Computed example of a mutant assay.
Amino acid sequence: MPYEAPTHTVERSLRATTGAKIIAGVDEVGRGAWAGPVTVCAAITGLRRPPEGLTDSKLITPRRRAALAAELERWVTCHALGHASPEEIDDLGMTAALRLAASRALEGLPVRPDAVILDGKHDYLGAPWRVRTVIKGDRSCIAVAAASVIAKVRRDELMAELGLESAAVEPYAFAENAGYPSPVHKAALHDLGPTPFHRLSWAYLDAMPRWRHLKKVRIAAEAAALESGGQLGFDF
């Protein structure tokens, strides 16, 4: 699939305009899933040339993506993952859960970034981090693209491992859908109900009368963000 390779343009701009020397690219995966955590990767790459074929993780085949993630983990200066659990998503709302996962990733780095490049339009991270948001940053910015690939592959692996650890979740086919609403996943939910790995504040339970009583009320802050026009978005 043709694509325009990401560059270090944003990193160079931040260095020139802010004096930042250590810059982390940040991207998330799992925002639109019905089960599992939301996962954020923070990656620091410097200004070196990246491995061939780097781009947004969604544009890469699963086999190539897995191989590229392993290559990137050796190539980046450093990286770290942060997760927010389904329980934290239900309790805090997605925006705050993203902030929590991103903070965990950034604080897990061996060095503290001077600036952060965040994929997307909305800054869900905020102070004390110096943030530059970049729409489609996972396609245009090398550090964010690297974070995108690593986050996607490692979260997919985490979801696949759930099926190996517990036969009870096998019908949901997390290894194939990573917690997203595939037909098999929907059928299992309808017949068996949610597992401890499912997000219980999500609207899918409204369409399942047998399990609707398990739904958690979404917190007021999240509802207010939606009513004010805030876009939480989904990544597929």
Rank of each mutant, 00 (worst) to 15 (best):
L232G: 05
A224H: 05
V134A: 04
A146Y: 02
P51C: 07
L125H: 01
R15D: 01
S13Q: 15
R65V: 06
D138N: 08
A173L: 13
L98Q: 14
Y180Q: 06
V38A: 11
A147N: 08
V184Q: 15
L81A: 02
V153M: 11
F236C: 14
N177M: 07
A20N: 06
A203H: 10
R199T: 04
R155Q: 10
L109A: 01
A43R: 07
P183H: 02
P171A: 06
V131F: 07
M208Q: 14
Q231D: 05
A35D: 04
D91N: 14
A5W: 00
R155D: 13
V153P: 03
L164M: 11
E28C: 08
G137M: 07
A67C: 07
R99E: 06
A173C: 14
S57Q: 08
L81W: 01
E222N: 05
G32V: 09
L118A: 05
P6T: 06
K216T: 10
T9W: 08
E71S: 14
I89S: 11
L59Y: 04
T17A: 15
H79N: 01
L205E: 01
L68N: 09
G137V: 03
L226P: 00
D156C: 12
D27T: 04
W75N: 07
V26Q: 02
W129F: 13
V184D: 08
R104A: 10
L98V: 03
L205C: 03
D123I: 10
L164T: 13
T18Q: 13
L125Y: 04
A16I: 04
L54P: 09
V38Y: 10
I89M: 13
A66P: 01
D123M: 12
I219R: 15
A67N: 09
G32C: 03
F197T: 03
A207M: 08
I44V: 15
L125G: 07
D123W: 09
T7S: 15
H8A: 06
E4Y: 03
I89W: 12
E73K: 15
P50K: 11
M1D: 05
V149R: 13
E170Y: 00
I135Q: 11
S85H: 03
A145W: 04
H213G: 09
G32S: 06
W211H: 14
D156S: 14
F234Q: 15
R139W: 01
E227N: 12
D27S: 10
K216S: 07
C41P: 07
R63P: 00
F174L: 13
K152E: 09
A145N: 09
P2H: 13
G137T: 02
T9L: 12
L59V: 03
